[in-house]
């Protein structure tokens, strides 16, 4: 267990305030945030970290595009 289990715990509550873009979207967001915070210990440069975020956003975004049917615009 990471030394910061509360991030995930609080994220489960807070994510409910966000739109559900597809079934499982909230869990994917929580996983993404968890991954971002956990991988900080392995990634010292901001470029590495931002690349990880971009990849995660693309992954969840493509799921949203294929399952959710559009953006807020």
């Amino acid at each position: 267990m990471a030394t910061t289990p509360r991030i995930r715990e609080v994220a489960r509550v807070e994510v409910k305030h966000l739109p559900l873009r597809y079934e499982g979207y909230h869990e994917d967001l929580i996983d993404a945030l968890d991954e971002i915070t956990r991988q900080q210990d392995h990634m010292t440069s901001s470029r590495q970290r931002q690349e990880l975020i971009t990849k995660l956003v693309e992954k969840v975004g493509s799921m949203a595009a294929s399952l959710g049917g559009g953006s807020d615009q």
Binding site: P19, R21, L29, I30, L33, I53, V57, V60, S71, D72
Partner: peptide, 21 residues
């Protein structure tokens, strides 16, 4: 593009979640 717009929305959601937590 729709893809880009969705990604921006997801990014924004992720940012909101991180801030809220």
């Amino acid at each position: 593009s729709r893809d880009l717009a969705v990604r921006r929305d997801v990014g924004l959601d992720l940012l909101s979640l991180a801030r809220a937590v």
